[in-house]
Nucleic acid binder design. Structure first.
Lengths: 375, 375
DNA sequence: TAAGTACATTTGTCCAGACAAATATTTCTT
DNA sequence: AAGAAATATTTGTCTGGACAAATGTACTTA
């Protein structure tokens, strides 16, 4: 019996389900005709209006296509067509920093999995992040890669909450919100910063300045790694060597930090720029002041951006596998789509030191001096 | 009279149109209730089933939302909601060259018009371009910004043809296919190259080498501009100073070109790198060979890429308004969506010389020499 | 044989009416 | 006064029937 007249389920709805079932079972194949309305009336015992209601609903859902005089046909349906396969990616600005590398990693992996990437540039601004969240929700994206904006944790939570309300999985990339139960992919910023600070210490540096952006989690972790390395070597923190503009990265603001640090220069100073763009800015300002690196100043960065890599001035820095973060983020989203209930995947990728020529080896100098003194 | 019973137009359809009209006129406002079915029966003289058919169709089209017991309500509707609003952008690689600037310009303008951008990286490869064309067609994008791949015109036509078959408008950005009746946005490469070559000539240079990529239209035009400038100054082309690897830009291949050009160095040589990335490669190889710019060699580029701008070594180059190309491309697509039949919009933006410090003024040297000789 | 005509089939449009289900409001009961 | 029950309203489901429109097929006619 196709339709149970005593069931509380509407009869047209029962018929709909039966039709879909027959299609799924292959009884009615794509391109073929289903029974005529009159036949269905006979089969089900319903009246024609009810049969028509079922058929018209399924036509609206793109299962069936009625053709006058010929009958009603099962539509060819590409299973990919019915489900969306778009993933949003919200980065600060595709033109700068790691964003393009991240986007490329995500895009490659998405393409491999027959998904597409919608690009959003937040400029680290809350109102833009809000706008794009709404847009992505409207586009019915299947998931979102979100690089948290350089703002309060609360604002970032607001953004994430919007997606959650629509049951859209979010994975944080690069920057994270430590207190949140959420998927993320990042790198070991603490140990990276620890390693590069230790590298400076090994080279004999004792006065190590740092410029970092306190608004982003990754750089806060880097600052902590820096502190720990100094602490482990019994070097007290020197506030005058720490600059932490609580604003977005802009040349104007960060130039001031650079100048402030440069004022502290006596003997040899090492500077840890918590990301490569700060390092680059530092380099160009130092150059203007006729200071050579590494002769007059040592400088290290963080990121190993390809744009900076191409420079002939060799910056010692920490390499972050940003492309890999993009790839992995897509993985995480796709696996979350398969299984919503699994506990958050929090992936921390390894980064490593890339030694180039921007750090002076004071140990050698000192040893040489000592040697020449004793000679 | 709302419904004309003698009209060949179905009565439910007439009622639908009337309802939509009332909504558009503001008689029935979003969030408010339309007349009950019983009232509509009275007003129209139709039977309730017919009224219901009209209402259910409009409910399917997201105009109305019936609520049992309360009536039927007009939905708050963003007119943009009903239609798709995704535009594909196919660039070689978001990480390099102008792609990110182009994408950002497009994305900003798209956002302003409540559209989204799907990112595709072709790597200048035909099979990837094919793949993404199919993907974008499947996603039912409303339009495509296509940066032609560095390959034959025929292959690019194939890609464009696929979109045309699905009635998806395509706008070429940056690179163009001159013989095609199609929308495009580009810059005046010929005059840009003419201007920068003339700039070198003005500075007293007579031996001007060029390295360019013959696979992309823009650089072919630049080569032509270079030739014209030399010709206008009665300087014969010197084949040994022209390098045109017929391959994609890679460091390995282009390094050979750079070395080939460097071999031709006697007296002072000027080099026109047809895009900034070649200039950067040239610079780093020259630096390895302990050659200074502009003292030993003059160098000019093309693009004025932000990544290069940030360098402290100041490259004289041609600024291209790439961001603007992205913005304008979106404009063109949106206007084409409004009116399919209008003739192709072919927009050529102005670019201009940005003079920095990578060109030696030989005129000054010569004048000085002459002066010292006469003295 | 070719063109036109009638026919049969199937979906499309429309009507008149009945009862069900949801739910705010009113009335009744305790 | 609080809770329960009845009521009224509106959409939801369903019946049974009629004619219209589209269109392939079979038949008729010149």
């Amino acid at each position: 019996m196709i339709v149970d007249r005593n069931s509380p389920i509407p009869q047209y709805y029962q018929l709909q389900n039966w039709l879909i079932e027959q299609i799924d079972l292959g009884v009615f194949k794509p391109g073929e005709r289903i029974p005529t309305e009159e036949e269905l009336v006979r089969i089900t015992g319903l009246c024609r209006a009810t049969v028509r209601q079922a058929i018209s609903n399924l036509a609206n859902l793109a299962y069936l296509k009625p053709r006058r005089r010929f009958g009603t046909f099962v539509l060819e349906r590409n299973p990919d067509d019915r489900k969306k396969s778009i993933i949003g990616i919200m980065v600060p600005d595709i033109r700068s920093g790691c964003s393009s590398e991240l986007a490329r990693g995500a895009e490659d992996e998405a393409a491999r999995n027959k998904h597409s990437i919608v690009l959003c540039n937040t400029d680290d601004l809350f109102f833009k992040a809000e706008y794009y969240a709404d847009r992505l929700i409207k586009e019915h994206v299947t998931g979102v890669i979100y690089v948290p904006i350089a703002d309060t944790e609360e604002k970032n939570r607001t953004i994430i909450e919007r997606f959650r309300q629509h049951d859209i999985p979010v994975v944080l990339a690069d920057r994270i919100l430590p207190d949140l139960e959420i998927d993320y992919v990042t790198t070991d910023n603490f140990y990276g910063a620890y390693a590069i600070t230790k590298h400076l210490l090994k080279k004999g540096h004792r006065r190590i300045a740092i410029i970092y952006n306190g608004l982003v989690s990754s750089e806060r972790f880097r600052f902590e790694g820096y502190c720990k390395a100094l602490q482990d070597n019994r070097i007290p923190l020197d506030e005058s060597l720490i600059s932490n503009p609580q604003t977005l990265f802009t040349e104007q603001v960060y130039s001031k930090s650079v100048l402030k640090i440069l004022k502290q220069r006596k003997d040899h100073l090492a500077v840890f720029a918590a990301h490569d763009q700060i390092a680059l800015l530092f380099y160009s300002i130092a150059r203007e002041k006729k200071l050579s690196i590494p002769e007059d100043l040592s400088l290290v960065g963080y990121d190993n951006l390809p744009q900076i890599r191409a420079f002939s001035f060799g910056l010692t820095t920490i390499h972050q596998p940003i492309y890999e973060i993009g790839r992995k983020s897509i993985h995480v989203i796709l696996s979350r789509l398969r299984d919503k209930r699994v506990k958050p995947k929090q992936i921390v990728l390894k980064s490593w030191l890339v030694e180039r020529h921007s750090v002076q080896d004071l140990g050698v100098l000192r040893r040489n001096r000592r040697y020449s003194q004793t000679a």
